[in-house]
Amino acid sequence: MSILLLAEVTESGLAVDATARAVTAARQLDEVTLLCAGGSIVDAAAQAAKIDGVSKVIIAEDAALAHRMAEPTTALILSLAEGYTHIVAPATSDAKNILPRVAALLDVMVISDVIQIDSADTFQRPIYAGNAIQTVKSTDAVKVLTIRTSVFEPADMNNAAAIETVDVPALPNMSTWIEDKVEASKGPELSSAKVVVSAGRAIGSTENFGIISALANKLDAAVGASRAAVDAGYAPNDWQVGQTGKVVAPNLYLACGISGAIQHLAGMKGSKVIVAINTDPDAPIFQVADYGLVGDLFDVVPQLTEQL
């Protein structure tokens, strides 16, 4: 077995948490070769080499890889794919953009959002917004997987893996990157935070998110939102938790004014402790909450912030 794992790299360098969690999953199979692809990747590669379970880091540096566009990144991975039995990545928006493309060109299926590796060819993944868990056995020669990071702990960082630079082949140029609008969040990152405070449609405005942020600050938490809150423009799209947003599994998830639609639950049901604050005692969110408080979030949230 030999595993090629695409490290998650952003404009600001290696996304250590997502990468180290995917390594934890992949190293159950074997040691991992980590591919760092980007426009300027040396620092990210140095960081990546520290992740336990990584036997080698490959640097692929090229201006065409700078924004990890799907077509050139796929071509790069295919140029390196020979000999690997598994091609793996954390299930980020970047990897979900790229790996199905890689799989199709290898004439194999992609296995998205793996939550458990049973063996070299058998994997578990959620379907129907997490209402069912499917165990699938791949008959393909190469397994292409994305890993749902929230269910794996990050690997430790005590390693010093070898770093190797590869020649980048000529890359296709079918798309042009124009800009990224990425707001640096003040608090911890949503997908790895220990505590998440989320608000739904009931929050009513962007300004009102202030009381949610104040509570989040107190708890060193990340802020999340339901789709309804994002659609209404109260919160940016990358705060959305759910089937089509981020999947989180913090120690503590506080849902404030969120009804608990299955699509929202799909993104937070794996949290250790769930608290729901809602004016409607029949809101479905109470069925998954460990602690429910029936009340107006505009009273409860500021009181909670004060009492903590």
Partner: peptide, 12 residues
């Protein structure tokens, strides 16, 4: 819609 926010690209 990407993990960190929004990205704009031109495709042929």
């Amino acid at each position: 819609e990407i993990d960190g926010g929004l990205q704009t690209i031109d495709v042929k």
